[in-house]
Write a protein that binds this DNA or RNA. Sequence first.
DNA 1: GCAAATTAATGATTTATTCAAG
DNA 2: CTTGAATAAATCATTAATTTGC
Lengths: 196, 196
Amino acid sequence: MSPRSTRWCPTPEQLMILQELYRRGLRNPNASQIQNITAHLSFYGKIQGKSVFYWFQNHKARDRQKLRKKLAKELHQQQLLQQHPHQPTPSAFHQYFNCYSTHRFYAQDKLDEWYKFIQGSGACGEALEGMVKQIRRRADDLPKDQCLIRSYGHDSMMIVDDVGPTFPCCRNRNLETLELFPLRSPTLKDQEATAV
Amino acid sequence: MSPRSTRWCPTPEQLMILQELYRRGLRNPNASQIQNITAHLSFYGKIQGKSVFYWFQNHKARDRQKLRKKLAKELHQQQLLQQHPHQPTPSAFHQYFNCYSTHRFYAQDKLDEWYKFIQGSGACGEALEGMVKQIRRRADDLPKDQCLIRSYGHDSMMIVDDVGPTFPCCRNRNLETLELFPLRSPTLKDQEATAV
DNA sequence: GCAAATTAATGATTTATTCAAG
DNA sequence: CTTGAATAAATCATTAATTTGC
């Protein structure tokens, strides 16, 4: 690890300003514009002109990329619908399972549901294979009666509940056992974050 | 439709335990930690793992948010005192705009007034930024010739309604000009305005 | 005092960003 | 550069708390 980061770390204010400028349509600031913006932003924290330049480059690129992906996906969805109007499609599965990531808690029966869904989809692209593998991997090292897995997607979900009965041992414990919880000491990242 | 509550309502004991864990530095409990905590907490009342997960997410986020706001306010206050010793401060604006427990109806010219005030305050705290965002968002889908803005309490939320020809003063005004108000300072505004 | 109206707080969800591995 | 995993931010929704008008 390098002792000092050489990389620009935008403050919330700086980010807000940049985003606002972008939102209003600024895409390719010229030299003097960059200078001006940099001057303003430096009020909120150390910053160089190149950072402003890079920020707009990156932001624009990623914006476009996102848009392209979205359109491609929609198009693909439509095509699939036309071809196999009543079968679960890979992209449907993708939407269902893999849109974006969040920590969620799912019970075993939800897992089974997913397997069925994958099977029913009749699809076996690489993406689905990977997903199946992931599910299996996760499921394998989970307890039988309740599981905690990482999952994705929009759908409403089954949550592991009633942990009580499954842990009779805890019933008689008192608060002292809390001492046993492995308390993570704040990481550097956390400290930075709270120090902002 | 379930008539009963679906949302976890922490008991005082549960809350105390969670807060204590947080105080000791626990921020992102992993799966097994969550399971453990849930088991313990279920001794004091019904609770699901996801609630523990969410609690830490929310608590951490709101903790940071509070801290950020405080720091930003202090910093901003200082800056204002140094730069514009006799200009309206954020708290003055807050008083002006955010009187408790009133809802008032404002016409377009009032909106303009607010923009000017915000502008004049030279302020750029989160609260003001949020307000500008709100105003803009609402204003965007308003009819061109009339508007009605309703403001609620501390949180500076504004809701815009269409109320028919009640405010003749607004009839000929046009919201587009709102977009042109400078975000932070005249120079910035000029830049992006030309860039659009 | 009380009940309706309204605000504030916070649980729950979704979306965006960061970060690192391949 | 792409992708998956982790986290943070933004937002939605419900409940608790507060205020207000009678």
